[in-house]
């Protein structure tokens, strides 16, 4: 794989991770368990979708076929989406949403921090902006996970169940695909095993404070990075893309 193709796939992956999780979090808009959380999740969604715009714009430029951020977001099928499974899973109950966000945020912060020293100026610029936002996201999801874990029997049980269910989707975060390997070798992006060490330390620290058990590593799901997704992504994209699919090129 040539560097340019790897860079396109990498920028699409980063954009898709942020876009899909951002869309999932936006599903809490008007449905949050309390007003402050409704507002928090939609603010976080806004950050993520902003990051997605930066990545997909860049991906379109790298590809050089004239595709815009909107073309990439609204006119690709699920098989062309390159996000990890973790971000596309349904929103579940609030413990599930928080646990998923926590597992992703811990990964996302370590990755964005590493990308602030990328040799690629655009990846560096996007990361410099994103890293400070993601630090707030991780703080938010950590605090809520601790509140649930160290809360009532009911909240503890729900948080533990969510972690147990989600754990099998964390392996994929750290297994590089060809694009990630090519770029890591070229020194453009970090090696995922370095990110994994930092993620693991964050997870241990927060789970300890939350009195939650770290699930044992077992079978890990994968496929998202090459466009093979769970049953959750298709319906989400159908909803997200419906306007552009029904009225191609419509603006408002």
């Amino acid at each position: 794989m040539k560097n340019e193709e790897a860079l396109f796939r990498y920028a699409v992956r980063m954009g898709d991770n942020s876009l899909v999780l951002g869309h999932r979090l936006s599903e809490w808009c008007g449905h949050g368990p309390q007003l402050e959380e409704d507002i928090a999740q939609t603010n976080i969604a806004l950050d993520l979708i902003g990051q997605a715009r930066n990545y997909l714009t860049y991906a379109g430029e790298v590809e050089g076929k004239g595709r815009s951020e909107d073309d990439l977001a609204y006119l690709r099928t699920d098989r062309e989406y390159l996000n990890v499974h973790l971000v596309e899973l349904h929103k579940g109950d609030y413990a599930y949403t928080i646990a998923r966000s926590f597992l992703f945020d811990a990964f996302h912060l370590a990755l964005q921090q590493a990308l602030t020293t990328s040799t690629d100026e655009r990846l560096k610029g996007i990361a410099e902006k994103a890293v400070k936002e993601v630090a707030y996201h991780l703080r938010h999801s950590s605090e809520w996970l601790i509140r649930f874990g160290d809360g009532t029997d009911e909240s503890h049980e729900r948080a533990q169940n969510a972690l147990d269910d989600l754990w099998r989707y964390t392996g994929e975060l750290f297994v590089p695909d060809e694009a990630e390997e090519v770029l890591a070798k070229a020194g453009v992006v970090p090696h995922l095993k370095d990110i994994q060490a930092e993620w693991s330390a964050t997870v241990d620290r927060v789970l300890k404070e939350a009195t939650l058990k770290r699930p044992a590593d077992g079978w890990m799901a994968s496929g998202g990075k090459k466009g093979v997704h769970t049953e959750h992504l298709g319906p989400m994209l159908a909803e997200m893309q419906t306007l552009q699919r029904t009225y191609p090129g419509v603006e408002w």
């Binding site: 402050e36 959380e37 507002i39 928090a40 603010n43 950050d47 703080r139 938010h140």
Partner: peptide
């Protein structure tokens, strides 16, 4: 502090 996220992304409540 009530919430890290206020009326806009740049404000806390």
């Amino acid at each position: 502090l009530v919430s890290h996220f206020g009326s806009t992304a740049c404000k806390a409540l």
